[in-house]
Every structure is written in structure tokens, then in C-alpha cells.
Design a protein around this nucleic acid. Structure first.
Lengths: 113, 113
DNA sequence: TAACATTGCTAAGTATTGCAAGCATTTTTT
DNA sequence: AAAAAATGCTTGCAATACTTAGCAATGTTA
């Protein structure tokens, strides 16, 4: 969402790295890095950001937010709503559904043996 | 990490939602949702995943990893808060079990009407 | 000085996300 | 039963991430 012009360039230069050195270590082309630093790229992919976060020593989540992706950090309210790890994957469920799912899971597993 | 075929469709149907209902709430076109569910989309953007995570009640980070984006390390405090009843009793579930549970959840909920 | 390497950058091309419009079929309403 | 609405889906199309190839300027070495 916001402007991160100057940010990536300052980051790289603070480490004393050239575009081609970053290219070697991240396998992101120097051409693209140049475009990124000059503000021609709106939202580099998470994978690209992850590579950059490693070489620059900056948090992956920091870079994600920097370019405007939704924040990765969970809010406490959401954590409390999602009680179990299953709920994290299938969405929130009621207590009754939880029991029924448990039984069904048990049935599923016994059937596949 | 690779294939999430069946997952998004199972998620939606477990909630008893139509493509156009999800479109209304997330502002993601039903056309795109259809392609996503049929496996024609490799990596939907973080913003799209964030919207889906909200309407489906599934962790944003879970969806991010599901489609193959780099994993984000959780804070220890959050991890401990996340695991509760079901996880402690049955342990983790496989991807196949996950989809099967979603389908059963859909059946459970449709039965009670 | 001359040859060569390195630097940042641009232009053109490929691939993919996501949308608008529309179609065929099923479901709902009258 | 007919009309209307809702549903899932396909087909172009625009926008954009990212690459390869190359250029001009600067730095390095013989």
C-alpha cells in the first residue's frame, strides 16, 4: 500500500552489495532488483521477499507488510476463537461438531487398515 | 506445499456457501474462485488468501503455506496458545484427512436443516 | 593507453493473477 | 408449467511480476 521507494536500495547499499551480488545469492535478476529499487514494482512476490529478507537480515514479515500485504501476525482475538489445530485448518467449529469430527476421524482411520 | 486441489472447494462447501456468496463477502470474482477450486491457479495473492481466510475462518498463515509461500515462523507464545483439545488428543491430521473432515462437516451441517 | 570487467539500467518478451461478460444448467418463484 | 433467479463454469482481456539480452558509463588491469 505504501511507498517503499528508497528502502530496498538503502538496505542493499548499507550491506555494501551490488545488484549482481544480490542476484547471485538470491537468484533474483539484477534487472528486476533495479526495477524494484526504483519503485517500478508494486508488489514483489512473497518468495522474492523471503529471499531478500534472508540476504538483508530483515524479517520476512516486515518486508511483507512493507510492500502492503496483509499483516502476518495474528490478533489475539483470532487466536482465542480458533481453539484447536483442526479449527485452524477447517475453520471454527462448535463443541458438538468437535466431538462428532473426532468420532468420524477415529472411524476414518480404523477403516483404512 | 504443492497440491491443494479439493481443499478450497471442501472449505467453502463445508460452510454451505456458494461461489457468488463468497464473491459478495470477499470481492473476489466467482470466476476466479471457480478456477482456484479446480486447480487452475498456482498461487493466489496474499490479499486474496487473506480474504478467504477471514470468510472461512482459517488461519491466514495456514493458507499461505498451503499454496506454497515461504513458511513464517510463529512466535512460541502463539504456538502454545494454538494447540488445545483436539490437537492434544488426536495429534496432527494429514491433508487427505483434512479434506475428508471438511466433506463430513458439510454433510453434518446440511443434515441439520 | 588500450583492453577488459563491472556497474546500474532499459526494452522486450513470457507467464500468471484476477476480472467482466456471458453461457448452460439447475433451483426457486409465481 | 412458465418465468425468473441462482449456480458453476469458460473465454477473452488487462495488469503486472520477473526474465533474458543488451547498452552506456565507470572502474580495473596490462
Amino acid at each position: 500500500m505504501e511507498n517503499y521507494i528508497g528502502y530496498f536500495k538503502a538496505l542493499r547499499e548499507s550491506k555494501g552489495l551490488t545488484l549482481r551480488e544480490v542476484e547471485r545469492q538470491t537468484e533474483v535478476s539484477n534487472a528486476y532488483l533495479s526495477q524494484l529499487e526504483s519503485g517500478k514494482i508494486k508488489q514483489p512476490s512473497p518468495l522474492t521477499l523471503h529471499k531478500l529478507s534472508e540476504i538483508y537480515g530483515v524479517g520476512y514479515d516486515i518486508l511483507m507488510e512493507k510492500v502492503g500485504y496483509p499483516p502476518l501476525k495474528k490478533k489475539v482475538a483470532e487466536i482465542n476463537r480458533d481453539k484447536s489445530s483442526i479449527a485452524l485448518r477447517v475453520g471454527s467449529i462448535t463443541e458438538d461438531e468437535e466431538v462428532e469430527l473426532l468420532n468420524y476421524l477415529k472411524f476414518m482411520r480404523s477403516r483404512k487398515k
